[in-house]
Design a protein around this nucleic acid. Structure first.
Length: 275
DNA sequence: CGTTACCCCTGGAGGC
DNA sequence: TGCCTCCAGGGGTAAC
């Protein structure tokens, strides 16, 4: 479920409740998700204070006194992960793999497909973690602009859409937002990255940014529901222009949206509006 | 080096 | 109702 906007909205939803709180316990019910869960993690966490919650790409980073002998709890939601704040003592359900317990609430991770991750990084420099050190640029950072994307794609002859989803280049853009952004920029997902002009990259990057920001804003309004109820925290994209709209009329020209496969993922686009 | 195929896993949808 | 196939918003790894 989560792409960058969902992860960011989850982070913002946790901010009123967790930073400043002391971890009084943790419960790990699963030996591994995407990776093995570090041995002794629950004990390591217990007693530390949560100083801050940051986001890097689709990773949530919990600063657990990292500058005072602690470290970082690193969390990834994979395809099916979700976070809830539940009252202390709430019985767990199937696929509830992890609890982080503070005095007044419990952060609960649920992930049926177990593609998520739960990791620990000792010490202050979380960017040094092997999975984080290889990540690309943040799409909402000012350094991410059309000129930058044009420059780094000069030797990339593959199609643009899988490239936008490559976290080693730029983080956080998943299958939905890659498709939506390319539609808004009028660029075919099949076009070779090194055959897109600088001018068009200067259109594409703002399209990416506005698509992500609009989704974060849409999710922001439902943060309270998210952290307090069983309500869906899924797709904050209220309405997609192309994603999951195969056969339906294009919102611009009325011709049917196509569904193809690229690098093992479905791609939705308009063959008339996107070139 | 760049690009793609496969794999990790469960659950929901739709066909028969 | 059951059984089957296909599909799903991610990403690490191996192979070309």
């Amino acid at each position: 479920m989560p792409e960058l906007p969902e992860v960011e909205v989850s982070r913002q939803g946790l901010l009123p409740y967790l930073p400043g709180e002391r971890i009084v316990g943790a419960c790990i019910r699963t030996p591994k998700l995407r990776h093995d869960i570090p041995a002794g993690l629950a004990n390591r966490l217990t007693g530390l204070r949560i100083d801050a919650i940051l986001r890097r790409g689709k990773y949530l980073l919990f600063d657990c006194e990292s500058k005072r002998g602690g470290g970082w709890l690193i969390l990834h939601l994979g395809m099916s992960g979700s976070l809830r704040l539940v009252p202390p003592g709430t019985p767990e359900k199937k696929h509830d793999h992890f609890d982080l317990v503070v005095a007044r609430t419990t952060l609960r991770l649920r992930d049926p497909r177990r593609f998520g991750a739960l990791l620990w990084h000792e010490g202050a420099n979380v960017d040094a973690h092997p999975l984080l050190a290889v990540l690309g640029i943040e799409p909402l950072s000012p350094d991410f602009d059309g000129d930058w994307l044009h420059t780094v794609t000069r030797r990339r002859s593959g199609p643009i859409k899988p490239l936008l989803m490559d976290s080693h280049l730029v983080v956080g853009i998943g299958n939905i937002y890659a498709a939506e952004s390319l539609f808004h920029a009028g660029i075919s997902p099949l076009r070779a990255a090194n055959r897109i002009s600088l001018e068009r990259y200067r259109t594409l990057v703002p399209a990416i940014r506005s698509t992500l920001e609009a989704s974060i804003a849409a999710g922001g309004s439902s943060v309270r529901d998210y952290v307090h109820s069983d309500g869906g925290a899924g797709c904050f994209q209220l309405s997609c222009a192309v994603y999951d709209r195969a056969g339906a009329p294009c919102t611009q020209c009325g011709k049917p949206i196509h569904n193809i496969r690229q690098a093992g993922r479905s791609t939705f686009y308009c063959t008339h509006c996107q070139r």
